[in-house]
Structure formats: structure tokens, C-alpha cells
């Protein structure tokens, strides 16, 4: 919900900056919006050298996502317990030994706090 709102705001700002270039200069003087944990998690998830989730998962606003893993939608319905989602990202093999999902926590691909941020983001989808 939050993300939708911030998206609308960003789009509005983009459209406004195209229509009214002067207002962009004004906007630049305003203090920067502090990124939420969801924003931070999103950028880790989208980063090819970090989470790189889109290599395998469909995400609603992703360009050319892969399809090796299930689409990341309705995550709260699929994971009523947030800790189960976190465990899945930490080491998916603990639930399914045949999974090809990289063990992001177990293999230190992401740090503990990065995993938490990614969980925040994925849980918002």
C-alpha cells in the first residue's frame, strides 16, 4: 500500500518534471525522501549483484523477469507466518532439498540485515 503511494508520488513528480522543468529545480531543494525499509529491500532484490530475485521470479514492476521460481505475488497470503518467508530466503533447501534457490543467508550472499530488508520488501508484494 505504502509502495503504491510512493510510486504514484514518484510518477507524479516525473510527469510534473517533464511538464514544468522549473518545478524540478524547486523540488531539488526540498529534503530528500528517506527510503523506507521496503525501498531498501527492493533495491537489494533488484540488484543483479545482490538479491537478483528477478533472474528467476516475476515481480509486478520488473522488466523481463525469469520464470524458474514462482511469481512473487500475494506473499502475505502465501506466507501467513513472516518467519517462514524469511527462512525460505535464508536457506530454501531447509524446506525442499531439490530447490535451486540460492541460500542467501546460509551462504552469506546477503548479510542478516539485508535479508531482513528483502523480507520487508517481498512481504509487501
Amino acid at each position: 500500500m505504502n509502495r503504491n503511494l510512493s510510486m504514484i508520488l514518484r510518477l507524479t513528480a516525473l510527469v510534473a518534471s517533464i511538464l514544468f522543468p522549473v518545478s524540478l529545480a524547486l523540488a531539488e531543494e526540498l529534503p530528500e525522501v528517506i527510503p523506507t525499509s521496503i525501498d531498501k529491500g527492493r533495491s537489494i532484490a533488484f540488484n543483479r549483484n545482490a538479491g537478483n530475485c528477478l533472474s528467476c521470479h516475476f515481480v509486478v514492476d520488473a522488466e523481463l523477469p525469469g520464470n524458474l521460481g514462482p511469481p512473487l505475488i500475494q506473499m502475505q497470503a502465501r506466507f501467513p507466518d513472516r518467519a517462514v518467508l524469511r527462512a525460505q530466503i535464508w536457506n530454501a533447501a531447509s524446506q525442499n532439498p531439490d530447490t535451486i534457490m540460492p541460500p542467501y543467508g546460509k551462504h552469506n550472499i546477503l548479510t542478516e540485515s539485508e535479508v531482513d530488508l528483502v523480507v520487508d520488501y517481498i512481504y509487501s508484494l
Partner: peptide, 11 residues
């Protein structure tokens, strides 16, 4: 990748 996931899309 090339057996278990062959035919799948990586991006």
C-alpha cells in the same frame, strides 16, 4: 540449470 531447469527463463 541445464537439466532440472532446462527450457526455463533466467531473466
Amino acid at each position: 540449470c541445464h537439466l532440472q531447469s532446462a527450457g526455463g527463463m533466467l531473466r
